[in-house]
Amino acid sequence: MSYQIKIPSYTCGGEGCIENVPAIIEKEHAKKIMVFTDKGIRSTGLLDGLTKILDETAAEYKIFDDLTPEPAYQDVERVMDEAAQYEGDFIIAIGGGSVMDAAKLCSVLKGASYTVKDLLKDPAIAEKQIKTLMIPTTCGTGSEATCNAIVAIPEEQSKKGIVNDNMIPDYVFLDSQMIRKLPKAIIAATGVDALAHVVECFTSKKATPFSDSYAMAGAKLIFHNIREAYGDADNMEAKNNMMLGAFYGGVAITGSGTTAVHALSYPLGGKYHIAHGVSNAILFAHVMEFNKDACKERLAVLCDGVFPEFATKSVDEKADYMIGQIADIVKVTNIPTDLTEFGVKMEDLDFLVQAGSDQKRLLVNNMKELSLDDIREIYLKVLK
């Protein structure tokens, strides 16, 4: 069996690394830059550091900040219409997953004859039109490394991933200054999302030696730093490690793919607008418990790498320990574990089961097949 992995061609890390942005602009001979962000990022002042740097270059720039969290494809189309009016030749995205996903879509849509709706039907038609630079402002989506863009589909009350290698970013800057003042709730949600990426990719049917290497490296960083990054706002070492771990998780996704945790979380975001990381966190331990008999050996290998002090334990003990760690991290970071807090009712169960089962792109990666009854039982555990 052959296998591959694709990663951004240039990645820069460390506090203050966005100071290197002018060198990239010069290298790419960029004259008109499209800056993707959102109003939340602008209100925190995070964008100011970037615009100050851009003001010192010879390039023009235009800011596109009318981006909504967890955007529907219609939201993306609206922003693309605005972007079409600007003759941009380079894209910089500074924000979370939704901002970076929109920027990646713009990189294959600007000047193209196809639309977002066309890509939902056939992602393979996408071709890169403009190069991109990603500056994540959370520690979890991994969007800065992936070829995926997730959009909500309101008429289906769910979400769908558009996947094409041409959307892999060209440049990535992992600057922990971007998350120095990140609210604890966002550290929790995005951090657990990153944890789901590495665990799911390591236990995916499509896992390869390449994806395993990145997933393992990410798991070591995230398991050992998420509590500290959440609990101590001044622990920049932990936050830097979380950014790196999230990036590794994104790279692992391109080589392997997430599984049933993400599949079952999509309807929660699509219909109830629960933040992506939170919906993953609610389901995470329950899905892994369901999967355990099919992937306990893989969880044991992950345990050996992340917690070598448990080397003498049995495979079952190691698998249970990893699932217990996941549950504990969700608890320590104060993420809700009950869907009723978000207005989800028992009468919504049939919708959830059907919508979750429709996420074939991810469910085929799961080591254990899920019947409709299995999916129902998992959702029932979080509808208390």
Rank of each mutant, 00 (worst) to 15 (best):
Q4D: 09
S9I: 04
Y10G: 01
G13L: 10
I25N: 04
T37S: 12
D38L: 08
G40R: 08
I41A: 01
G45C: 01
D48Y: 04
G49Y: 13
K52Y: 02
A58E: 14
A58I: 09
A59T: 12
T68F: 04
T68K: 15
P69K: 14
Y73Q: 00
V76C: 04
E77G: 02
Y86Q: 08
I92L: 03
G96H: 09
S98C: 02
D101W: 04
C106N: 12
C106Q: 14
V108L: 06
L109N: 12
K110S: 10
P123I: 10
P123C: 09
A124S: 15
A124R: 08
E127Q: 15
M134T: 10
I135N: 08
T141M: 03
T146Q: 02
S158F: 06
I162N: 00
I162H: 07
R180T: 05
A189M: 04
T190D: 04
H197F: 10
T203G: 00
S204K: 10
K206D: 15
D212H: 14
Y214L: 10
H224Q: 13
A229C: 06
E237P: 03
A238D: 10
L244V: 15
L244N: 12
F247N: 06
G250L: 09
T259G: 05
V261E: 10
V278W: 06
S279L: 09
A281P: 07
V287F: 07
E289C: 04
E297I: 00
L302E: 11
C303L: 07
V306G: 04
V306A: 06
F307Q: 01
E309Q: 14
F310L: 13
S314H: 07
D320L: 04
K331D: 11
T333N: 08
N334P: 00
M346Y: 12
Q354R: 15
Q354I: 05
A355N: 13
S357T: 09
D358V: 01
K360I: 14
L362R: 09
E369H: 10
L372Y: 13
I375Y: 07
K381G: 02
K381I: 11
